[in-house]
Amino acid sequence: MKEFTEEQKYLRAKKQVDKIKGFYANLASYCIVIPFLIFINLQFVPEFHWFWFPIFGWGMGLTFHAMDTYNYNPFLGRNWEEKKIKELMEEDERYKQYK
């Protein structure tokens, strides 16, 4: 496996921190906006609870954002993308040897 330079390690860590900050900003927005929407709904149209639509819609988006931020992918496994890139690079290297 290749070694990363200090600069590459720093850039990868910075990118991850930016993803985490983005997720927490999204989460904070959700926690502020959803109660406001519930209040508006119950205040003006209490007979129809439409607030469930943004709760579930935005909640699903927030869930996928969290999964992306923390590299959790139950369908393809952890670090699937990096493993696949490595596999394709090795395959390409073997192909070049036989040409």
Results as ranks from 00 to 15, higher is better:
residue 74 P to H: 10
residue 15 K to A: 13
residue 10 Y to C: 01
residue 54 P to D: 03
residue 88 L to R: 09
residue 66 A to G: 12
residue 83 K to R: 13
residue 91 E to H: 07
residue 28 A to I: 11
residue 94 R to W: 09
residue 46 P to R: 02
residue 16 Q to E: 11
residue 45 V to R: 06
residue 44 F to P: 00
residue 87 E to Q: 14
residue 14 K to A: 09
residue 44 F to D: 01
residue 90 E to V: 06
residue 72 Y to I: 15
residue 63 T to H: 08
residue 25 A to Q: 04
residue 65 H to M: 05
residue 44 F to M: 04
residue 35 P to A: 03
residue 54 P to R: 08
residue 91 E to T: 08
residue 90 E to H: 11
residue 50 W to E: 01
residue 42 L to E: 15
residue 22 G to H: 03
residue 92 D to R: 13
residue 37 L to P: 00
residue 18 D to I: 07
residue 24 Y to F: 15
residue 95 Y to S: 09
residue 87 E to G: 01
residue 19 K to L: 13
residue 48 F to R: 06
residue 74 P to R: 10
residue 8 Q to I: 01
residue 1 M to P: 14
residue 54 P to C: 02
residue 36 F to C: 14
residue 62 L to E: 05
residue 57 G to F: 15
residue 1 M to H: 13
residue 39 F to K: 05
residue 99 K to M: 12
residue 60 M to L: 15
residue 11 L to M: 05
residue 72 Y to G: 00
residue 56 F to K: 04
residue 55 I to G: 00
residue 87 E to L: 11
residue 86 K to C: 05
residue 41 N to A: 03
residue 37 L to H: 03
residue 91 E to Y: 06
residue 40 I to P: 00
residue 2 K to S: 12
residue 53 F to D: 02
residue 85 I to K: 11
residue 46 P to S: 02
residue 77 G to P: 02
residue 57 G to N: 11
residue 27 L to I: 00
residue 17 V to Y: 09
residue 48 F to I: 10
residue 48 F to Y: 15
residue 52 W to D: 04
residue 68 D to S: 15
residue 88 L to W: 01
residue 3 E to N: 08
residue 77 G to F: 02
residue 82 E to W: 03
residue 72 Y to H: 07
residue 57 G to I: 09
residue 66 A to C: 06
residue 21 K to P: 00
residue 8 Q to K: 05
residue 90 E to C: 05
residue 10 Y to T: 04
residue 93 E to S: 11
residue 59 G to Q: 06
